[in-house]
Lab assay of single mutants.
Amino acid sequence: MQRVNMIMAESPGLITICLLGYLLSAECTVFLDHENANKILNRPKRYNSGKLEEFVQGNLERECMEEKCSFEEAREVFENTERTTEFWKQYVDGDQCESNPCLNGGSCKDDINSYECWCPFGFEGKNCELDVTCNIKNGRCEQFCKNSADNKVVCSCTEGYRLAENQKSCEPAVPFPCGRVSVSQTSKLTRAETVFPDVDYVNSTEAETILDNITQSTQSFNDFTRVVGGEDAKPGQFPWQVVLNGKVDAFCGGSIVNEKWIVTAAHCVETGVKITVVAGEHNIEETEHTEQKRNVIRIIPHHNYNAAINKYNHDIALLELDEPLVLNSYVTPICIADKEYTNIFLKFGSGYVSGWGRVFHKGRSALVLQYLRVPLVDRATCLRSTKFTIYNNMFCAGFHEGGRDSCQGDSGGPHVTEVEGTSFLTGIISWGEECAMKGKYGIYTKVSRYVNWIKEKTKLT
């Protein structure tokens, strides 16, 4: 034993070699072989497995989906700052455009905790909710729209109204504003409101030439003092309507412009014939205590009207009353817009006519005020429907199939267009061939041609 100890002390290297040989010859039971080890760690190889990531292109799944990435790591994937920024906006807080917040056709661009709407022409605001041009839906104005110097929408209202708090709607500024039905039992019968379409306001006024200088022999019209197929109006439903009495009662109609003036057809009036105007009328054979009678003290036909040349060209006249009318729910003026808007309103496509005229061709006159909704007829169809001249200051309205029309005794009465609950004068009943005849239409004086003249002559002093 002493000898062994001496050998170990003198030859430590020998001992180490012996131990190493023993270990190498022993069977290893701690580690699995290569094949079995792979069965336990069965993990798919990654895209760049075996390579240094710093030297390969980034992978979106590896960089940002398996674990949260930084902007720089995302930049490695896209290799483009702009594309990385677009991805980053949604990656950080989701897609803010998912709810489609942009209105009126706006395009949404996502941002971090926010979004941006790219608005089409005519709109602005956070969600493109603000109209900035009158060309689109009248700028959301209830009545009139004008573009300011910086191309912003400025709404306005006709006389007797003021802008509401929203700067879009119009509200009454006087007790009985024009064009409004205020009798409670008839307010439910107000005709369907007309909503502004998209309009090209630059070209809204037709490029028409008034044929002022045409000389033409007097034409022989049949029954051209021209509501057939209409309905009984309720008291106060058309408070701007008046009836004219002269040699015979209810020979023509008219509309209240203001307390002192009536507008009617020029062919209705004769110099030297006494005319009485009755406002607030409903049943011409009954006294309903809503009527107001006034005498006409002055007749002003349009300066281009000449019955000797043509009885229905420039067929418009103004009547001055001896005493002002007292405005109330049964006696209310009709609204008159400017030339541009009167023309736009007419193009809405349908209007209402009213009167006490004959209820059928050569038949009896109506006792109760009649009204009828009539569609506008395109000019080409209008011209083809008659052998008589249709001037540019006239328009056609009615039904091709016949059966409904204005008729004798309705002449001078109103053709009105309702705009968001307020009625505007767009025409004056003038003439036609018979009444409600198939293929024939009622012919009306186009008020847009005469609004400046009306307003100039009827100013209240």
Rank of each mutant, 00 (worst) to 15 (best):
C178M: 01
G160L: 02
K260S: 02
G179E: 01
V243D: 02
S329G: 12
K459P: 04
Q185S: 10
E418T: 06
C145V: 02
E73P: 07
N5S: 12
V202Q: 14
D110L: 07
C128R: 00
Y201L: 08
L211C: 09
Q90G: 11
D200F: 11
L318C: 03
N343L: 04
N138W: 06
W88P: 15
Y312L: 07
A233T: 08
C396D: 01
N113A: 10
Y352N: 06
E79V: 13
V447T: 06
Y444D: 00
P172T: 06
K45C: 04
L52P: 15
L321G: 00
A397E: 01
F345V: 04
E76V: 15
S385G: 12
G357P: 07
V359L: 12
Y115N: 01
T276Q: 09
S448D: 13
L19K: 02
D223M: 12
I262G: 01
T215Q: 09
E124Q: 06
C407G: 04
D95L: 06
T186E: 14
E72K: 11
G106W: 00
C335L: 00
A266W: 02
E66L: 05
I309E: 09
Y352K: 02
D198S: 13
E67Y: 06
T218C: 05
E61N: 10
D93F: 06
T290D: 04
E165L: 10
F348T: 15
V368F: 06
G125A: 01
D338P: 13
H361I: 12
Y391D: 14
T29L: 14
G427H: 01
E116N: 03
S448T: 05
I256T: 01
V174H: 06
R46Q: 13
C97E: 00
F399P: 14
I256E: 00
K455W: 05
N100P: 01
M65G: 05
Y444W: 01
E86W: 06
P172I: 05
C157A: 00
L19H: 02
E116A: 04
N452R: 10
R162E: 10
D338Y: 03
I214W: 07
I284G: 08
N166T: 03
F176T: 07
I15N: 03
A380L: 08
E82R: 10
L367P: 14
W356S: 03
H267N: 04
M65S: 05
E288F: 05
L321E: 00
K39W: 05
Y47R: 06
P239E: 00
G179P: 00
C102S: 00
D315L: 01
E285Q: 13
H34C: 04
Y330A: 07
E434Q: 12
P414C: 10
W453K: 00
G58K: 13
